[in-house]
Computed example of a mutant assay.
Amino acid sequence: MIQTEMRPEATCPAPRLATRSIRLAIVEEDPLVRAGVSAIVQSHERIEVIDEVGLSWRGMTAAEWDVDVLLVGGEFLDDAFGKTLARRNGSRPETEVGLVAVLQADDAAMLRSAVMCSARGFVDRETSHLDIGRAVCEVYEGRTYVSSSIAETLVGWVARGVHRERLPVPQIEAALTERELQILEALGDGMSNTAIARRLHIQEATVRSHTYHILNKLNLSTRTEAVLAGYNYVHGIRLQGPDKRAQKPGKGPRYKA
């Protein structure tokens, strides 16, 4: 399998010394997955696993992330995580913590969340046993690493975004129900199905069903296109101001992201 690297030198921190171990923390909810990932990365001579945490990371302060790299399951990459990491790196830029995200290659919402959280490593769950060690080392050295399967998703995502005409806000609001608009906004904010279900207090199957209807009504082909349409929609209504997005005729107040 061809491995892919992207190296935006202008935005990367200076490379670090390679004479000591890379201090790594693993953030993953499933304890069996954590154990498996830990076994993989600890077989690498340069990597030392300092900590393994699940949901307990939410109780940690930014200062407690005293490691070189965080290896994080994509489902954790929400706004709260991004803000905590930004506070940590903002207060201690001389020891910036790098972020490697472990993702489903075809989950554009999770991929966008990783980008918004300033991840520099993007590893496909399906090939993580091959990619994780190299990704951690590359990010530690101030470079960017992308699994080839995720690179293909990124290229397709960008290409569709460039060539697809933006749908006007009134056209979207006329086509979708209130619940579908809520889900479209959440997709545009980079949320996964799990996160959307938690936010709206509905089942993931319901989220998938609404997403399917959104695709049909807006003549979109993939979830990636729905994420892009949602992003453009959210950007459009936020430019208009809160008074322009309050509700549709005959409907109650809309959910606000």
Rank of each mutant, 00 (worst) to 15 (best):
R198V: 06
T127P: 13
S43T: 14
V49C: 12
E185S: 15
Q171M: 13
M116W: 11
S209D: 15
W65G: 01
V67P: 02
H201W: 12
S43I: 12
D106Y: 01
R238C: 13
L220A: 01
G252L: 01
L99S: 01
E204R: 13
I47P: 02
E75I: 10
K256G: 14
V155F: 14
V162K: 08
A186D: 10
L215V: 05
P249C: 08
R160H: 13
S192D: 09
R199F: 06
L24I: 05
E180V: 03
R23T: 06
S43A: 15
S91T: 09
M60E: 12
L130H: 07
A205R: 12
V27K: 00
R88Y: 03
E9P: 08
I132M: 14
E152H: 15
Y145I: 02
D51R: 13
D106K: 02
G142D: 02
V155S: 14
F76L: 06
E96Y: 14
E138F: 07
V123L: 02
A114T: 04
P242M: 15
E126R: 15
E94I: 09
R208Q: 15
R23S: 03
V102T: 08
F122P: 04
G82F: 00
M110T: 04
V41G: 03
N89Y: 00
L71H: 10
S149G: 04
L181E: 07
R254V: 05
R166S: 14
L220D: 03
A109G: 05
E29P: 03
R58Q: 12
